[in-house]
Deep mutational scan, measured.
Amino acid sequence: MQRVNMIMAESPGLITICLLGYLLSAECTVFLDHENANKILNRPKRYNSGKLEEFVQGNLERECMEEKCSFEEAREVFENTERTTEFWKQYVDGDQCESNPCLNGGSCKDDINSYECWCPFGFEGKNCELDVTCNIKNGRCEQFCKNSADNKVVCSCTEGYRLAENQKSCEPAVPFPCGRVSVSQTSKLTRAETVFPDVDYVNSTEAETILDNITQSTQSFNDFTRVVGGEDAKPGQFPWQVVLNGKVDAFCGGSIVNEKWIVTAAHCVETGVKITVVAGEHNIEETEHTEQKRNVIRIIPHHNYNAAINKYNHDIALLELDEPLVLNSYVTPICIADKEYTNIFLKFGSGYVSGWGRVFHKGRSALVLQYLRVPLVDRATCLRSTKFTIYNNMFCAGFHEGGRDSCQGDSGGPHVTEVEGTSFLTGIISWGEECAMKGKYGIYTKVSRYVNWIKEKTKLT
């Protein structure tokens, strides 16, 4: 034993070699072989497995989906700052455009905790909710729209109204504003409101030439003092309507412009014939205590009207009353817009006519005020429907199939267009061939041609 100890002390290297040989010859039971080890760690190889990531292109799944990435790591994937920024906006807080917040056709661009709407022409605001041009839906104005110097929408209202708090709607500024039905039992019968379409306001006024200088022999019209197929109006439903009495009662109609003036057809009036105007009328054979009678003290036909040349060209006249009318729910003026808007309103496509005229061709006159909704007829169809001249200051309205029309005794009465609950004068009943005849239409004086003249002559002093 002493000898062994001496050998170990003198030859430590020998001992180490012996131990190493023993270990190498022993069977290893701690580690699995290569094949079995792979069965336990069965993990798919990654895209760049075996390579240094710093030297390969980034992978979106590896960089940002398996674990949260930084902007720089995302930049490695896209290799483009702009594309990385677009991805980053949604990656950080989701897609803010998912709810489609942009209105009126706006395009949404996502941002971090926010979004941006790219608005089409005519709109602005956070969600493109603000109209900035009158060309689109009248700028959301209830009545009139004008573009300011910086191309912003400025709404306005006709006389007797003021802008509401929203700067879009119009509200009454006087007790009985024009064009409004205020009798409670008839307010439910107000005709369907007309909503502004998209309009090209630059070209809204037709490029028409008034044929002022045409000389033409007097034409022989049949029954051209021209509501057939209409309905009984309720008291106060058309408070701007008046009836004219002269040699015979209810020979023509008219509309209240203001307390002192009536507008009617020029062919209705004769110099030297006494005319009485009755406002607030409903049943011409009954006294309903809503009527107001006034005498006409002055007749002003349009300066281009000449019955000797043509009885229905420039067929418009103004009547001055001896005493002002007292405005109330049964006696209310009709609204008159400017030339541009009167023309736009007419193009809405349908209007209402009213009167006490004959209820059928050569038949009896109506006792109760009649009204009828009539569609506008395109000019080409209008011209083809008659052998008589249709001037540019006239328009056609009615039904091709016949059966409904204005008729004798309705002449001078109103053709009105309702705009968001307020009625505007767009025409004056003038003439036609018979009444409600198939293929024939009622012919009306186009008020847009005469609004400046009306307003100039009827100013209240």
Rank of each mutant, 00 (worst) to 15 (best):
V4W: 09
M8N: 13
G13T: 15
L20A: 07
L20Y: 07
G21L: 13
L23A: 08
L23F: 14
E27Q: 14
V30N: 14
F31I: 14
A37H: 03
R43M: 01
K45P: 04
R46E: 02
R46I: 01
N48C: 00
L52C: 04
V56H: 01
G58K: 00
G58R: 00
M65C: 05
E67I: 00
C69P: 00
E73T: 01
R75M: 11
R75A: 11
V77K: 00
K89S: 12
K89M: 09
D93Q: 13
C97R: 03
C117T: 02
G122W: 04
K126W: 09
L130A: 08
D131M: 13
K137L: 13
C141E: 00
Q143E: 02
N147V: 11
D150S: 11
K152S: 13
Q167H: 13
S182P: 06
S184Y: 11
S184T: 09
S187G: 12
K188L: 09
K188H: 08
F196I: 13
P197G: 10
Y201H: 11
N203H: 09
A207E: 13
E208C: 08
I210L: 14
Q216Y: 09
Q216P: 12
Q219Y: 06
S220T: 11
D223L: 11
D223R: 10
V227K: 10
K234T: 12
V243Q: 07
C252A: 02
S255P: 01
V257P: 00
N258Y: 02
V277M: 04
G280E: 01
E281R: 11
E285M: 09
E288D: 12
T290E: 06
N295F: 06
P301A: 09
H303F: 07
N304I: 04
N306E: 06
N306K: 10
A308N: 11
I309R: 10
N310F: 04
Y312V: 07
N313K: 10
H314L: 01
D315P: 01
A317Y: 00
E320V: 00
E323N: 10
L325H: 01
V326L: 11
S329C: 05
K339D: 07
T342C: 04
F348K: 08
F348S: 15
S350G: 08
W356K: 09
F360H: 15
L367E: 14
L367V: 10
V368S: 07
V374G: 02
P375I: 08
P375A: 14
K387Q: 13
M394D: 01
E401N: 10
E401V: 09
V416M: 10
E420T: 09
E420Y: 11
L425Y: 00
L425Q: 03
G427K: 00
G432I: 05
M437N: 08
G439C: 05
G439W: 04
Y444R: 01
Y444S: 01
R449E: 15
Y450G: 01
K457T: 15
